[in-house]
Design a protein around this nucleic acid. Structure first.
Lengths: 208, 208
DNA sequence: CCCGTTGGCTAATAGGCGTAGCTTTCTGGC
DNA sequence: GCCAGAAAGCTACGCCTATTAGCCAACGGG
């Protein structure tokens, strides 16, 4: 009969812990029963703090997207051009590898119409804006900017998704492959600039 | 009391129909109850033909991966170099857009240890071999080939995943963005070749 | 024609989400 | 200090999954 002292935020925090404990499939396996068990509470009690399992998932996604955005921004402060792009992508991948469950939560696309997803849409847009900001430093024409943003997102997200899903054998070479991918992306984005004036577009040359 | 005339294959076929009917989340929402309803049969009856829901999912994944491989191979017959690479990626994306549920099934990474996933592992490896075969035409050193394969897979898979998940606003420009991505990939792969002798590496020039 | 295999069935268990309604605890106003 | 009422637990329930057990009818080979 003593109170557990829960709150909406506390429940979400516990949900994040459950997600983290579940590895790559932690988000898919998130369940009210698990959160309740971790809180030391009966499952229906959670409804005093959370609207539904769907709401809870949304909250977790919101946190994850926010963290991903923060990781990207903090990695790119004081950098520009290819340097910033590399740092952004590396931070992105680092977050995914460090928090596979949360990163999986990130992949939930918000419903464009649902009002409940408004905050999620904003968070997602904000996250994309980090990429936009970095790519602005390349001096692309507007029509190319959106293509470049999509290419960067596709490349990094695809790589991380495949890596987390076990799509790559030979674990030891994955860092190297990511570097190559980054070189490709940097060169490709630079090539989209009109006169191709690459004052800050350098290559790592780390592979021979 | 009449028999429904089911068989393991028939059940899997129905499962694929259920997946197709569910759009992007068709695979995630695949349920024995739905398959049973479509078969006009009580849910437990399915166990006479299928080991479990997990087995059924595996079968669906196997079919989807096989179809993806087939789409890639048939799109690249008679082509080589950049031409083949573009055709492969386009076929890949086309399959995903035409069958979003099945493509989602594809994203399930087989357990490297589970014996039940052996066929899946083989199918996945075979699918990667298509990319390998196409990239061989670029004359890359062995050490670069694996990086190139990963970059191609990452770019295309990432793009398709984001597109299907609604990650791109402004639907009308998506084709254009994909073309730009392909240009980036083709150029990036070609740049990995040692002496950079790009006799077959051409650019579409479709964007200005 | 009959018997065994096979493919259906119903019943039942276990576990998930979510609702209803009760009870207890905390808190704020007097 | 007390006492209402709100807030936070609880149990019981309904409905949906998957899955197992055991029954019975239909089909096919001797």
């Amino acid at each position: 009969m003593p109170r557990a002292g829960l709150s909406p935020d506390a429940v979400v925090r516990l949900a994040v812990e459950v997600v983290d404990a579940g590895g790559t499939s932690g988000f898919a396996d998130l369940t009210l029963a698990k959160v309740a068990a971790k809180a030391g509470v009966a499952a229906p009690s959670l409804y005093k703090h959370v609207g539904s399992l769907g709401d809870l998932r949304r909250e977790v996604t919101l946190i994850a997207v926010g963290e991903l955005t923060a990781a990207g921004t903090s990695a790119t402060v004081g950098r520009a051009g290819a340097d910033a792009l590399r740092a952004l992508a590396t931070a992105w991948r680092g977050y995914a590898l460090d928090h596979p469950g949360r990163y999986a939560a990130t992949q939930i696309g918000p419903d464009p119409d649902a009002p409940a997803d408004a905050a999620l849409r904003d968070a997602a847009a904000e996250s994309v804006q980090v990429v936009v900001a970095v790519l602005r430093g390349f001096g692309l024409p507007d029509a190319r900017l959106i293509d470049a943003v999509r290419a960067v997102r596709a490349g990094v997200h695809g790589f991380v998704t495949l890596e987390l899903g076990g799509g790559f054998r030979m674990r030891e070479d994955v860092d190297q492959s990511f570097t190559v991918l980054l070189d490709m992306i940097v060169a490709g984005v630079a090539a989209l600039a009109p006169s191709d004036t690459p004052q800050s577009v350098t290559t790592t040359g780390s592979h021979t």
